[in-house]
Write a protein that binds this DNA or RNA. Sequence first.
DNA 1: CTTGAAAAATGGAGGGT
DNA 2: ACCCTCCATTTTTCAAG
Lengths: 153, 153
Amino acid sequence: MEGPDETDLQLLRLLGADSNLTIKELAGRVNLSPSPVFERVKRLEANGYIKKYIALINAEKLNYGLIVFCNIRLKQHDKSIGHQFVTDILHLAEVVECYNISGDYDFLLKVYAKDMKHYQDFVFNKLGSVKSIGSTHSTFVMCENKNSYNINI
Amino acid sequence: MEGPDETDLQLLRLLGADSNLTIKELAGRVNLSPSPVFERVKRLEANGYIKKYIALINAEKLNYGLIVFCNIRLKQHDKSIGHQFVTDILHLAEVVECYNISGDYDFLLKVYAKDMKHYQDFVFNKLGSVKSIGSTHSTFVMCENKNSYNINI
DNA sequence: CTTGAAAAATGGAGGGT
DNA sequence: ACCCTCCATTTTTCAAG
């Protein structure tokens, strides 16, 4: 497929902010009739420009009001240890994101917890039982100023 | 509203992973008929448990293959400086997330860039013109192992 | 890209447990 | 309070031009 044109980018912007817009509404925004917009959206989906559609759940409403970025250093750095760490970590419900990073630490986790007590339990009992972890460093979020979830194209 | 029951949580889980599921499909998953499911979903939306519905855009496909966590320390820490910083930063297209954090730095940004050259330009020309910034420290993502976007309830 | 029509989903009325 | 079965309306989806 050739790259998306300006109309495609506009559709991605619109759907990236609100995927409940109907084909008809999208058509109005980009000054086209519904059919070509329908075809464009389907093509963007088929070609992987749109990964999926999700609902954003309000974690605070479910009493998950604490966000923590947890830096992790492994004991050793061979491939199998790293791979084992990732599989261990992905099963933990509190871990929303996991990145392999440059710098002093090896991984960065974004963790959602109910409160400090819950986070303490997470570090001691859940991370504590992952053998490959050497040390951790937690950075607590005091305020989420922005989260747009998508790049602003 | 009273807290969501187990059926509501199941609906949140399902929609948090795929919001294209129809009411009928959801009904099948939770063993109910479409009508009560429709009402439950509308209530979860009205009461803020579902914030919004979005399409997840594939940033790599749009040549935004570099993710960087950028730690920022302000020059001073009074309220107006912090507020000005946030408004300045939210206008930058590359900044997807912004958190006010504990620890050595004041803010953590998640930044999407096309490549290292683009990121360098972002730091020098865009962050460089935000007067309230004292110093920065960049952590580069080598691999995104997980991003579920929602808490696993 | 447009028109137009079939298929499917939404959203709501009315009744039952 | 919660659920069900129908049905009108809207939206999606896919032809053919």
